[in-house]
């Protein structure tokens, strides 16, 4: 209701973006691991955004971790040049 009212208060274009934003937020929510949003009911968009941020950070950490491991693998000489190339590409 409040959102509707606030939306009605705004101009048409912003209303569209508002709807778009809510739509996008729900999409974003779908991308998040369910473990992060335990509640099945409507999650406030701010929470969705917060969780998105957290999730992105965790993903970054994971990427860093994985790249570290890949670099280690690359450092280990017992792999083919092809493998090394792949790993290198992954690291890049």
């Amino acid at each position: 209701m409040s959102s509707r009212r606030s939306r009605s208060r705004q101009s048409g274009s912003s209303r569209i973006t508002d709807e778009q934003i809510s739509d996008l937020v729900s999409k974003l929510q779908d991308l998040l691991p369910e473990a992060r949003l335990r509640s099945n009911d409507r999650v406030p968009s701010s929470r969705v955004l917060q969780e998105t941020c957290n999730y992105i950070r965790s993903l970054h950490r994971e990427v860093d971790d994985l790249s570290e491991r890949l670099s280690e693998l690359l450092a280990s000489s017992d792999m083919s040049s092809a493998q090394a190339a792949i790993i290198r590409s992954l690291l890049m």
Binding site: E62, V63, L66, S67, R69, L70, L73, L74, S76, D78, M79, Q83, I86, I87, L90
Partner: peptide, 10 residues
């Protein structure tokens, strides 16, 4: 990357 690490496992 995880695949890569897995793939690149000795």
């Amino acid at each position: 990357m995880s695949m890569g690490t897995g793939m690149c496992m000795p």
